[in-house]
């Protein structure tokens, strides 16, 4: 019996786990099982990020990297007006996009969770479908919609609302914000939905029985309890959008360029890896600070609401 039960830690008759030898211990087996994936992530994610971090303190002369420690790249990244502009714009765009996506997504997540009935799965599937089409094609589609001869302009002209096509729709920051708000919608809906599903319905009943109206019970019970979902939605949208490359390039025009385009240029045409690395690190640090601030505010608001 004990010899047969090699796969799992053997149990004694009264159900108490005996301390198994190291090779059969749960910790060892778990670590062994996850080690290939962990190793992959270490070599292709953690190591590369450390290498970028190291590069940001070095300098480049044509093709050779000078390994002397310097803060020059950070000085450039934080004082050159062009990079500061791009950084601010990227932060501004990612803040607005994450706010819009969360605010627009919350009612949908609420609707599915509270009124979805037996069709919850179908609703979620319907919402995720558009996001599985190529990102590139979706951005291009927005270009078709917002363009000078685009769908929106020709539609508005057809309705007689405007007499000539508006140029205000495409190639600016708002086009970038609209496109990104659309692109990240599903990533905001799913975490909010999950946290709303976890809200104990009896608490809402209790609030109502104790005299809270629907709005009050929503503000004091449902909303604060779903704060974790709102936080993860905000983070999952805010951090990646700050470094978006395709959208500013395709619909941003001159005014919509963001930091990722500058980072790409340093690794491409401009060929200044250390500066590109410093820009990447700066962007990550600043967006993390902004995200941390947002999380702090939401937590504080949720506490106050209760």
């Amino acid at each position: 019996m004990t010899a047969a039960a090699e796969g799992s830690p053997p149990l004694t008759a009264d159900g108490i786990r005996r301390r198994p030898p190291l090779l059969q211990s749960e910790s060892f087996q778990g670590l062994a099982l996850i080690s290939p994936t962990l190793l992959y992530a270490l070599i292709l994610l953690l190591l590369p990020i450390l290498v970028v971090f190291a590069h940001s303190f070095w300098t480049q002369n044509y093709l050779t990297i000078d390994h002397t420690f310097t803060l020059q790249n950070y000085r450039t990244a934080l004082t050159e007006p062009i990079y500061l502009d791009l950084l601010w714009r990227s932060l501004f765009v990612s803040l607005l996009v994450s706010l819009f996506t969360v605010v627009l997504a919350y009612p949908i997540a609420y609707f599915i969770s509270f009124h979805g009935g037996s069709h919850k799965g179908l609703w979620l599937f319907l919402i995720t479908i558009p996001f599985w089409t190529s990102y590139l094609l979706r951005v291009m589609s927005w270009k078709v919609i917002l363009g000078y001869n685009g769908v929106l302009n020709s539609g508005l002209m057809g309705l007689g609302l405007i007499s000539e096509p508006s140029t205000a729709l495409l190639y600016n920051t708002s086009a970038v914000i609209i496109t990104l708000t659309h692109a990240w919608a599903a990533f905001a809906i799913l975490p909010i939905f999950v946290s709303l599903e976890k809200v104990d319905r009896t608490l809402i009943e209790a609030a109502k029985d104790l005299g809270d109206g629907p709005l009050r019970s929503f503000l004091r019970v449902t909303l604060p309890l779903s704060a974790p979902g709102v936080i993860s939605a905000l983070l999952i949208v805010m951090i990646p959008t700050v470094g978006d490359y395709v959208t500013p390039k395709l619909v941003g025009g001159k005014d919509g360029v963001m930091i990722a385009n500058a980072i790409q240029a340093q690794f491409g045409k401009a060929s200044n890896w250390p500066l590109g690395a410093a820009l990447s690190v700066t962007t990550m640090v600043v967006v993390s600070l902004m995200a941390g601030g947002a999380v702090f505010l939401i937590r504080a608001a949720a506490r106050l609401a209760r």
């Binding site: 292709l44 994610l45 990020i49 590069h55 490359y245 990722a260 890896w273 990550m284």
Partner: peptide
């Protein structure tokens, strides 16, 4: 951000 993941891997 995908760009940062991509350039990190590229460097290595």
């Amino acid at each position: 951000p995908e760009v940062i993941v991509a350039i990190s891997m590229l460097l290595v």
